[in-house]
Write a protein that binds this DNA or RNA. Structure first.
Length: 476
DNA sequence: ATGTGC
């Protein structure tokens, strides 16, 4: 986007002022280079979001923002039900509750370097990955219902993980007010064989080494030290979330006239929070959040089983699990008044600051771990939420590097095999069922994650804690 | 993201 069309509000904050039908301004976070590189479509989409009824304060774009379906990826928007606010299926995204989980291992770099290939092969053998991948678990009707209501709590009850895990998951591992009755039979049928699977696209499971520490005190509070080995899992609600997105998008488009909504873009389909359809979507979306939490919990169990065989001295407690595609009811202070808002984060990570009551006691003083999944070769980051983020973006930060080019372009620029070989030379062992998928996810197809998190920190959205370097990657 | 789609 053109910088001259934006008003600079800080070193990493840019405002698109209110114009025409906009109800609030749009605010884009990023340094000059990142904002200049952002697609004009992302700008147009942030402006469209700013036109929706009941939007509060501003439509935000995170530093890794880019063009998405309806809302930009990296978009944050909060709505007030009392002011005609809406909920949007495109504002959550198709991969409902896609998110990142980080596990400690108790291992050090030296424990893993000799067995990297063995570990890569074992993880690849036991973690179902790729498009249409199926797991060993088949849920019957009652189990599907219980999973959609219980989330990771249900998974732990079934033996996949421990009670201690739940404290380190958003919502204690269970999203309340989920309504499986508003999830279509097709969505449930699609999900039946997909529990405990990674999926495809940018989803992955990595064994990583803690590299540079940016804030040693917070890193210590998070239990991270240079040379520690961690496992990062990035995936979501698979076919179920996708089908819910598809189902409700269609229904929201059809119902828009009856709700008196004139949509600037069909992809922005939404429904008033105070409507039957809006409430049904919220119930279904919360069920999809539980599906994603249960899925990451089962994957955690599979990972622990692999480590028990390959590196039996490892112990894998959960550091944190956070989603970056959700709409959540939260209280935020706006103009000095505490208000109940519905915050859409699409490709944006919740980032509660120090002292927030929803954080686990052991992490509360340090702030929420904000887990940033980078691309395969470039590494990932752990950030911490700040107090300032609430006023800047309803306690949100970036979620990853963000694509720099389309999948199509990337698949023309690279071959999967080449990418795997090049990364192996750098000591990063990739296993994937899809060479084409690897090409589409080539490190060069992404923006520089370091620049993204630097901008997030400079904007005040979160604080850098540690950089993580990949050693093993199972790619969907 | 996704049994890549009307």
């Amino acid at each position: 986007m053109e910088l001259k069309d934006l008003i600079r509000r800080g070193p990493c904050a840019w405002e698109i002022p209110m114009r025409g039908p906009m109800k609030v301004p749009a605010v884009v976070y990023g340094n000059e280079a990142l904002v200049r590189e952002m697609d004009d479509k992302a700008r147009e989409q942030a402006v469209n979001v700013a036109c929706l009824p009941g939007i509060v304060r501003a439509s935000y774009v995170m530093p890794d923002g880019h063009w998405g379906y309806g809302f930009p990826i990296g978009g944050v928007a909060a709505f007030d039900a009392d002011q005609g606010g809406v909920v949007s299926a495109g504002g959550v995204g198709f991969d409902v509750s896609c998110g990142v989980r980080c596990l400690h291992t108790g291992l050090r770099r030296g424990d893993v370097l000799g067995v990297q290939q063995k570990l890569a092969d074992a993880l690849f053998a036991d973690i179902p990955a790729g498009l249409g991948s199926q797991g060993a678990i088949r849920l019957n009707h009652q189990e599907m219902h219980d999973m959609l209501v219980g989330g990771a709590k249900w998974a732990v009850r079934k033996g996949w993980g421990s009670e201690a895990d739940l404290d380190r998951i958003e919502e204690g591992g269970q999203m309340l007010h989920a309504k499986p009755g508003f999830v279509s039979d097709l969505a449930k049928t699609r999900q039946r064989p997909e529990m405990g699977t990674l999926g495809s696209g940018n989803h992955y499971l990595e064994v990583q080494e803690v590299g540079e520490l940016h804030d040693a005190a917070i890193a210590d509070a998070f239990g991270l030290h240079g040379g520690d080995i961690v496992v990062m899992i990035h995936c979501g609600s698979r076919g179920l979330g996708h089908q819910i997105g598809t189902d409700y998008l269609k229904r929201m488009v059809e119902a828009a006239p009856s709700h008196g909504l004139v949509l600037p873009d069909r992809e922005l389909a939404c429904a008033p929070l105070r409507s039957e359809l809006g409430q049904q979507y919220l119930g279904a979306m919360r069920a999809a959040i539980n599906c994603a939490l249960a899925n990451r919990q089962i994957l955690t169990h599979l990972v622990r089983a692999v480590f028990a065989r390959v590196l039996p001295q490892a112990r894998l407690p959960l550091l944190y699990d956070v989603s970056h595609n959700t709409c959540k009811q939260e209280q935020h202070v706006v103009d000095g008044r505490r208000r109940e808002l519905f915050v859409h984060r699409k490709g944006a990570t919740r980032a509660f600051g120090p002292g927030h009551p929803d954080l686990p006691a052991a992490l509360r003083a340090a702030g929420q771990p904000v887990l940033i999944g980078g691309s395969m070769g470039t590494g990932s980051y752990v950030l911490a939420g700040t107090q300032a983020s609430e006023g800047l973006a309803f306690s949100s930060a970036c979620h990853g590097a963000g694509r720099a080019m389309s999948r199509h372009q990337a698949s023309k620029n690279w071959q999967g095999r080449q990418v795997v070989d090049e990364l192996a030379r750098q000591g990063i062992f990739v296993r994937s069922p899809s060479p084409r998928g690897v090409a589409e996810e080539a490190p060069g197809a992404y923006k520089d994650v370091a620049a993204v998190v630097d901008a997030a920190e400079q904007a005040g959205l979160a604080r850098k804690v540690a950089r993580l370097r990949p050693l093993v990657c199972v790619k969907g």
